[in-house]
Amino acid sequence: MSTKTASARPAKRLGREERLAYGAIFPATLLLIALLFAPALAVAVVALTDWQLGATTLHFVGLENFKALFADPVFWTALKNTFLYVLIVVPGTVVLGLIVALLIEASPRLRGFYRAVHFLPVMSTMSAMAIVWGTMLHPTIGLVNRVLASIGIAGPNWLRDEQTALLTLAVIGIWQGFGFAMVLFVSGLKSIPQELYDAAAIDGADSIFERLRTVTLPMLGPVMMFVIVLTACRCFEVFDSVSVLTQGGPNYASEVLLHRLYTESFNYLRTGYGAALTVIYLTIIVCLTLGQTRIMERRVHYT
């Protein structure tokens, strides 16, 4: 008799915990589906249609959008520029961030001040700061060309020149991001145990560069990897500075993927084409992030 009630009861209690859990996850689950997974699926579907925003008809066109995309030289320019941007900004950000981090951590003097100063660009609203950069790079009244002129060099029209536009945007990208890399490097430096430096000193590696080579840089390996991938992800998302300063011009010299996506989808309202572009973009980002987790896992075993 008593065992009978007892065996019936536990099931009921477990049920209560489950009911509670389902109540708790219901809103989040619903929104995850409605705002993340269903839209992601919708992008893939729209990419296979000729749909245009506001149109009432819709035809499946198979891979036509992708064919059009791959036949479009502007797409290839945008892709090339994006990778070029990544190739400039990532090393720039990592090297500058690492140097600043090493110098800041080298001594406690003014440490907090330097950290705050270098972190300010990370916090600033890019659209406003891009406008400011625009005036600094102005061919005649801009700070950069005034300084160059004072030493007798006639600076180019940085943002209007096909040769310099992308490079200039990349410098702005480094400006915005290197403080963040610095912060990540600092936290990586802090986690290196002092005993390793002591051991290195006893083993004879006591000059600054020896310490750097034998202890600091190898121990920073995982953080370095992380900063590289993170910066690369942010680079693929570059949009604000392009949109504010060059609109991808001149002559697509600074056109990048996300700005292309925006222009095609929301200016020209070529939704199917934009969706195909989105699929490409999504694939790149997901591969990059997955690659990072794969590498990070291997690194964890190593350290």
Binding site: A40, V43, L258, L261, T278, L290
Partner: peptide
């Protein structure tokens, strides 16, 4: 994993 910009069209 999904970058929010990629969902701009459906949103």
């Amino acid at each position: 994993l999904i970058p929010p910009q990629a969902l701009a069209i459906p949103h």
